[in-house]
């Protein structure tokens, strides 16, 4: 069928239509799904880049500098900057635009701030779908800036094709660097604030960490370590070169397809998960829930049997076989 008018407007470059669609996605409006279904068929052209790292590492400033550099290379840039929501009020202060003022007024740059709204992996639940909207709108590169992340916020892997992990000098010794988690997901390491003392040592520790990783040695892509000073823009052209090189490497090795496949799979699983929860909510009344919970607490039954009963009632055949 023909595209919805708001989708046509987005495809024609209407920024208000794009912004409005992102709002619908964020609010999980019922209209968002049919719109996203149409947008999906128009996407697939953008290079999706994630930037993550600890709070204060300079992610926003680096995103701004990187966007400027890519603009010099005649690319159109979409930016999604995620900041945390308050766990108490649900409100948020989204301050990433403050560092991106030099991009204001450029019609080829679109910046959208996003509150994490309780999502824990460093992104908002709506981030991937917002990327889908920007992709359909024809941006060449989409930069996703995560919530300031520590060690375990690795959700960006499921949203981006290239992950940049931003570190700064003096953030801990080399044991920090061999822990599992965020350091494993980097396609490119950036040591930002490289004008500060200790930058060379941090870069050396990261290089040591990479050399310990036997699996990485077999891969075609060797994770580069780029020293930047986002405040002055030093090292940013080199970072842009590495981005392009990583995309080329993903294409050559066929990994672009396998990453997309993994991401599509995790996205479908998440949607099915949600559909299952919706089905449970629609089938099992609050009273039944509370009765089952009470029975488990009183030890009249156990969590496995209680969950089994719910599974049976929503029509899961596998649950019946267990009886």
């Amino acid at each position: 069928m023909a595209n919805y008018p708001i989708v046509e407007r987005l495809l024609a470059g209407d920024r208000r239509a794009l912004a409005r669609i992102v709002t619908l996605i964020e609010n999980n409006a019922p209209e968002a799904r049919p719109i996203l279904a149409q947008l999906h068929t128009h996407g697939g052209h953008a290079h999706i880049v994630g930037l993550t790292g600890s709070p204060g590492a300079g992610k926003s400033t680096l995103v701004m500098q990187l966007a400027r550099e890519l603009r010099r290379r005649e690319q159109r840039i979409g930016i999604i900057a995620v900041d945390p929501s308050s766990p108490f009020s649900g409100g948020a202060i989204l301050g990433d635009r403050i560092r991106m003022q030099e991009l204001a007024g450029d019609p080829n740059v679109f910046i959208r701030s996003m509150a994490s709204r309780g999502s824990l992996g460093g992104l908002a639940t709506a981030t991937r779908d917002a990327v889908r909207a920007l992709d359909a709108a024809g941006f060449d590169t989409i930069l996703i800036e995560t919530v300031g992340a520590g060690q375990a916020e690795v959700e960006i892997v499921r949203a981006a094709q290239t992950v940049i992990v931003v570190t700064v000098p003096g953030m801990g010794d080399d044991i920090q660097a061999i822990k599992a988690g965020i350091l494993e997901i980097a396609d490119i390491f950036v040591v930002n604030k490289a004008d500060r003392p200790g930058a060379d040592q941090t870069a050396a520790e990261l290089r040591m960490l990479l050399s310990l990783d036997e699996q990485r040695k077999e891969r075609a892509w060797r994770v580069p370590i780029v020293k930047t000073s986002a405040a002055s823009g030093e090292g940013v052209p080199e970072l842009a070169d590495k981005l392009a090189a990583h995309l080329a490497s993903l294409r050559e090795t066929g990994q672009l397809g396998s990453r997309s496949g993994r991401q599509a799979r995790s996205e479908m699983l998440a949607l099915l998960h949600q559909a299952l929860l919706d089905k449970i909510a629609a089938t099992i009344s609050t009273e039944d829930w509370n009765r089952l919970i009470d029975e488990v607490v009183e030890r009249q039954t156990d969590p496995y049997s209680a969950a089994g009963e719910i599974a049976r009632r929503i029509g899961l055949a596998a649950a019946q076989e267990q009886d």
């Binding site: 308050s86 989204l94 003022q101 204001a104």
Partner: peptide, 25 residues
């Protein structure tokens, strides 16, 4: 924020163009 709203703060020295562009995006 404490009233549960999502607040985008632009920073100082905003031109009318910057404010309107931010409001749209």
């Amino acid at each position: 924020r404490d009233a549960g709203m999502e607040v985008i703060y632009t920073g100082i020295r905003q031109t009318p163009q910057m404010i309107v562009e931010a409001a749209i995006q």
